[in-house]
Design a binder for these strands. Sequence first.
DNA 1: GTTAGCACTCTTAAGAAACGAGTGCTAACA
DNA 2: TGTTAGCACTCGTTTCTTAAGAGTGCTAAC
Lengths: 340, 340
Amino acid sequence: MDLDERKRKILHAIIQTYLETGEPVGSRTISKYSDLKLSSATIRNEMSDLEEMGYIIQPHTSAGRIPSDKGYRLYVDHLMQEKEREVTELKELMIQRTDKLEQVLKRVVKVLANNTNYATMISAPQYHQNKLKFIQLSRVDEHQILAVIVAEGNVIRNKLIPLCEELDTETILKLNILLNTMLNGKTIAEINLQMISSMKEQAGIHSNIISDVVDAVAEAIHSDEGMEIYTGGATNIFRYPELSDNGKASELIQTLEEKQMLAELVTETLNKEDKGIQVYIGSESPIQSMKDCSVVTATYELGQGLQGTIGIIGPKRMDYENVMSTLKTLMDQLDDVFHK
Amino acid sequence: MDLDERKRKILHAIIQTYLETGEPVGSRTISKYSDLKLSSATIRNEMSDLEEMGYIIQPHTSAGRIPSDKGYRLYVDHLMQEKEREVTELKELMIQRTDKLEQVLKRVVKVLANNTNYATMISAPQYHQNKLKFIQLSRVDEHQILAVIVAEGNVIRNKLIPLCEELDTETILKLNILLNTMLNGKTIAEINLQMISSMKEQAGIHSNIISDVVDAVAEAIHSDEGMEIYTGGATNIFRYPELSDNGKASELIQTLEEKQMLAELVTETLNKEDKGIQVYIGSESPIQSMKDCSVVTATYELGQGLQGTIGIIGPKRMDYENVMSTLKTLMDQLDDVFHK
DNA sequence: GTTAGCACTCTTAAGAAACGAGTGCTAACA
DNA sequence: TGTTAGCACTCGTTTCTTAAGAGTGCTAAC
């Protein structure tokens, strides 16, 4: 069977109506409220075809039709091709310049959740590919020194290093120079055991104590502590009856709260070749508990190799058009903020 | 009317039964399953009295009784007087020593939520009273320097300061000395405008540029950014039907997500003279959306004046006994961790 | 190819009836 | 005087029935 222009139009009308109402839509509704000038009977015939082709589903015999995952997919793909709309919505104002990335990310999920009325998430970039810019050791008191590590994108890490033996100022200075010489400009992934042992060697007589320091710095740099993920608007879930039923809401909110599962989604997104906007409909999503949802993700870039993922989680009858253009706008603004 | 020993026992039995089942409890249940050896009729009479006295409530004519806020209050106060039980549960193992406070707090809410099956929250201490230990400025690149501020309790703050004019190493060194001399040992609350202007004066010729630096440091120190609050186990709410009804769950989870409201609770708790465990039953809580919950809070101390609040949010039929002793144990362990 | 009409299906809402948990009251008992 | 058994009564919950309504599929006519 062929998906001709008319079928396509009818499908479009069905999906749009369903997005608005959340109720199964019947032939009569389409006949009346679309500009197709067809009777309900004709629509019925076409709908019957569309169902056979798998684009729509009938929840039960005497109900209207709702889009299937396949139907949504067609709709979304179609939207993708359309010119990106000139949307404003998110005022630049909202994202005030901050030098604390965490603050920005937290604000983003909040703003995004408020604007879309869906649940949102954002992952902080992972720093494997990030170049070290600057390392500084300072003596805090007799028993510990502080290591401050600054990387590209002004990412800052602190690490307190306990000492059993006191280090004099000169040694610390020497260590500072050593660390900076060896490590500046390197990406975190590039720092390997060989390098570390080479540094220990160069530290010479202080090797014992210094060993601790270098180890601690390396640990601080590598410390992944899993992926940082922020979420927002979880309770928007309750706006959509089809998601707030039974244990679904609970399960979903738990997924958002635990954050662990979301990491999978982030990994999946970042591994895609196409760095643009991705849409996971229902069971397309790698997260089991989101099989009744749609997830729209986008990748943002903070610097070279410094990428994170933004996600919007909502019902399958998500307002894809709005979500996608909102995301696009947001991406542009984030670019502005990060590459000020 | 007098609340004699027998009434007290019956009330106790009613509350305990209700805590277990969550269902209104009838006279027959008490008669059968308590060791009072009284017939249901007698219990009925007593229950009628207890209701008149306001300790229990009848949701509707033909239902059993449930405890009123006043009833819970009596029960809790009674528990408070009892010797603190020897509970273990939370193994020290769970709280591994970390020098990142944030990590510890996040872990605490998670562990606590898993152990109690209620929602949990914890506030990071507020640093007004905290003494500065160490300040370090370092040059990151031509356009910015990094200020690292370490306070008592090893609380670390970073602040990137943009520069319009380049600062040479010597000036930075001088500034470092100035800042440390002036500010070390001071509490954050003690740093006032007068002090800052005095520092600017001493900076002499560099005053212009330095002014920026000092301002930025002051800002970083004072930057409150509201109270940091972590929550966990929000979805435990769904375990209790009386909370997961209607919009209640949604409202509650939103409160937990927004965190803003929780700050009020923290403030309230910290202002109490009694720094021990507090219990807010129903409308006693300062948070409107928790009028159907009970909230148990405790204050932990990280250093002098460095206090935070831990809270457990659950249904009124919370297992107070367990919660309170778990909290007590946790407090002890936190003390251990912080004052290692 | 399109449409009107109609019988049929199935969900949902509303109402009715049966059930049952629990009470309050009274009268009998120790 | 306190305790208990018994019973009528209340009221929420469950189950069943019925009616309404939305929507379809099919057929026949245009």
